[in-house]
Design a protein around this nucleic acid. Sequence first.
DNA 1: ATTGCTTACTTGCATAAACAACCTATAATT
DNA 2: AATTATAGGTTGTTTATGCAAGTAAGCAAT
Lengths: 146, 146
Amino acid sequence: MNESTVISEEFFSFLSGKASTAISRRLQRNLKEVKLNITAEQWSILYYLWLEEGLTQQELANFTFRDKPSITRLINNLERLGMVIRVNDKQDRRSNLIYLTKEGRKLRESGMKQASLTIRESLEGVDETDLKIAQEILERVFQNLK
Amino acid sequence: MNESTVISEEFFSFLSGKASTAISRRLQRNLKEVKLNITAEQWSILYYLWLEEGLTQQELANFTFRDKPSITRLINNLERLGMVIRVNDKQDRRSNLIYLTKEGRKLRESGMKQASLTIRESLEGVDETDLKIAQEILERVFQNLK
DNA sequence: ATTGCTTACTTGCATAAACAACCTATAATT
DNA sequence: AATTATAGGTTGTTTATGCAAGTAAGCAAT
């Protein structure tokens, strides 16, 4: 890419993240369809907790590419909804370890199911090899800018 | 993609739009560096107006993949900043035609320049052919879900 | 023990997003 | 012409984001 790079329509849609916003809107819709009243952002936090509980907020921030204030507030909301609890780390009292409540664990199966559904809908007709390339490009862009 | 599609780390980052959020953060930063105090979202509206003035809010919504309320508020803010004005369409009195002010037009050159800079930074080391593939995949995903 | 640096999290402020409900102007149907 | 449907915008509510500034706990090295 040289100095005279022009802002093409295609690049604009790249910048606008139209694909990823479409995906998260669809995820939201698919969650709602099974009466899962959580946002796509809340889902992304729960996703990592479904894989492993007791993560710190900083770890969640790293996993989900959000800043710490965003995590603070997402956890506030999830705590208010009774899905997670903060447990103060005895080893390092600066940290909160985030655990699921019984309620939060119950959502796991349908939450995961609706996410796979969303993936299938998104990737219909997409070639596996091309998808790999696309993911590598996106990763490269992220590395370039982070 | 079959029924048993699993949510991979890679797909997660696809869903989270980490590349596109990185791009718009960088754009924001690059704008700030030349004292352009507009947000990346405001930039995206101005971009289309720099190409053609007198667009309706609905047209801007279509171009930028946002809903109408989002555009209403973005235009409110841009109008408050003295960058654009709403002109009621005499032909169809439901529509507002959006025009740049002198102030808004002045930003064009540096606004475009900082955007190309952002593109160059993002795509450093990215193969042109792969980029095309990635854009096609993103477009396909969007078409699948829209 | 004190000083200074870093890390984990929170708060404040401004902006933006989605969705639903609404108003008004135009278009379509009868 | 009157009725209904649709299209363009706005408002309300809730949630989320970025950045800057703050608090408090841990760490390092005198």
